[in-house]
Structure formats: C-alpha cells, structure tokens
C-alpha cells in the first residue's frame, strides 16, 4: 500500500443544482492519516461535497480521486475501503444495537467468522458492552453517535467520511467522540496500512475545527481558507486580537466601532464575545493606550485587557468579511 497517494484529492470540483452553484471549483487534498476538517456554515456546500466524494452525487465538473481511484467511476472498488456516517443519525432505531452492527458488518462483506470479534471491539469502543440488546432508539444522543461511528468502522476503512457527526450532541459527548477519533487516527487501520485511519469530517463547530490537523473553510461553495489551523490563523489574520473585559461590553463595542468608522482608530474588527470585546488590528501594542483613552472618555472602565491568540472563530469571521 502506497501511503504517498493522498487519501482524497479534489480538483476543480463543481456542482450545480439547476441555476444554483452549490460547490464552485474547489481544490483540496487530504493526506493519509490526518483529520481533515471541512468547515462552513449551514448550506455552504459541505454535504454536497461529501456526497460527491462518496460517489453518491455526480459532480458537474472537476475530478475526485479517493485512495487513487476515481470517485465516480470506481465507486464500487472504493466503497469497501471507506466508511461513512451521514449527517442524520444513520442507524435503524427500531433494531437493537447488535442487529445494527450485524447489518452493517454484513453490508461491508465481513465474514461470519470475523463479525463477532469486530462487533465485540465496536461495542467496547462505543462503551456499549452489556447493552447489545437495547433498542437503538432507547440510547441517548451521544451513545448513538458513538454506535454509529463504531458501525462505520467495523470493516476497518482506510478513509472515514463524517458529515456533521456531533450536530445536536451535548459538549461532553462531543468531547468523548473526538477522543475516539484521535484514537482511530493513531491506531493502525489494518494489517496493510501501517498508518491510522484518515478522517474527513465536516462541522460547523469552531472548537472542533481546532482539533483537526488541517482544514478547509467553505463558504457559498468556495474554499476561502485552507491549511493547518496555525497556517490559517497566520494567513488570514494580519492583525492581532485584543481581548477586553470592559464594565459595559455592549457600550464598549459601540464606542470602538464609532471610533473605527470615523477613522480615528484603525481596527479591522470589533466583535462582542459575551461579556468580552475582541478587537482585531495590526500593531496592537501601540493601540492599547489609545483604546483605553477612548473607552475612559465614554466612562467605560476596563477590568482586564490582553493580546490573545486568535481563535478560529475570529479567523472565520475575519475571512468572511
């Protein structure tokens, strides 16, 4: 097995639905053994892209190669080697945990001899030992997501496609889910591939994006940022981020935006973050005292102020402008 071949390559990938351009000439490459995040707001083209990668949807233009094979023409050869967890909960609610696992195992052609062992591993991984005979609909959201994930990897896929796997799941379960993903990419997938699983995951949670090795930001069908979280922050944020904890955050945002709009202060962004204000601008060290003065004149007291590492959320908002 040649690990030099990228897990997924998309070139000029385009999809029209009538007059609507869902995905517009995007290019990206997913390396072996990485968690590749595909980020974007709802309706930005994430699901359309993942469906094209899986050969479920024919691209209008462009090419996709998955494991070195053509995603559309060679779909039949690709399918046994990849796993997929669709956006909506993809298991059968009326069946038991074990019936679901047996079905997907058989669907991926696992032999009767291998199946019990794999199912045992899956149950262990999902933490569902002893609940084999529970109806799937009786499990809580987080358990079901983990069960769906373990069903998607029963056949030890080389690439795993996850479409918004944690949508609607509580934060603790989301964290547990990501821990599982990390274990997957660091454990060898099977005897042939020495590296772990490659994960292609779509999400709109910014905190999850930070967990990815590399990312693509997609907006209105176009990739607007691409690279590792660190690279993206570097490329996209020319300025630094100053986090201010003022006595009145809403009033502070108003004052600072007025200062920016009148040309008094050269800010790129002024955004409200709960009770905090994030100001983005180059040369922040110099600007700090002028910001203090500006706010003091408006009788806003600054409780705390510091230059912070920009979050991907800051970057995303900055890139979307």
């Amino acid at each position: 097995m040649n690990n030099k071949i990228p897990a997924v390559t998309a070139r000029g990938l385009t999809k029209y639905f009538g007059d609507f351009t869902a995905v517009n000439e995007i290019d990206f490459e997913v390396c072996r053994g990485e968690i590749f995040g595909f980020l974007g707001p709802n309706g930005s083209g994430k699901t359309t892209t993942i469906r094209m990668l899986l050969g479920l949807l024919q691209p209008s233009a462009g090419s996709i190669s998955v494991l070195g094979l053509d995603a559309h023409g060679d779909a039949a050869s690709i399918r046994p080697r990849v796993g997929y967890m669709s956006q909506r909960f993809s298991l059968y609610n009326d069946l038991t945990v074990i019936q679901n696992l047996k079905f997907y195992g058989a669907a991926y052609g696992l032999s009767e001899a291998l199946l019990p062992e794999r199912i045992q591993e899956a149950l262990q991984m999902a933490g569902l030992e002893g609940r084999e005979y529970a109806k799937t609909k009786d499990l809580s959201g987080g358990w079901r997501q983990r069960l769906a994930l373990s069903a998607a990897i029963l056949h030890r896929p080389e690439v795993l496609f996850l479409d918004e796997p944690t949508a609607g799941v509580d934060p603790i379960s989301r964290r547990a889910f990501w821990d599982l993903l990390y274990r997957l990419v660091t454990t060898p997938a099977n005897e042939e591939t020495q590296g772990g699983v490659t994960v292609f995951v779509t999400t709109h949670y910014m905190d999850e994006a930070e967990h990815c090795h590399r990312l693509a930001f997609i907006q209105r069908g176009e990739i607007i940022a691409y690279g590792s979280p660190k690279d993206i922050k570097h490329q996209k944020m020319s300025g630094q981020v100053l986090e201010i904890a003022p006595s009145n955050a809403v009033a502070a945002v108003k004052v600072l935006r007025e200062a920016r709009d009148s040309g008094k202060l050269p800010f790129d962004e002024v955004e409200l973050y709960g009770a905090l204000v994030h100001v983005v601008a180059p040369g922040m060290e110099e600007l700090q005292s002028r910001i203090t003065t500006e706010l003091r004149q408006a009788s806003i007291h600054i409780e705390q102020m510091q230059i912070i590492e920009p979050s991907l959320e800051d970057v995303f908002i900055a890139s979307m402008r």
Binding site: Q87, R88, F89, S90, L91
Partner: peptide
C-alpha cells in the same frame, strides 16, 4: 430517515 443514503454508501 436518511438511512437510504447510508445504505448507498455501502458496497
């Protein structure tokens, strides 16, 4: 229920 899409992605 969205399981058809999942089925289509299997072999």
């Amino acid at each position: 229920h969205g399981t058809l899409e999942q089925l289509m992605a299997t072999p």
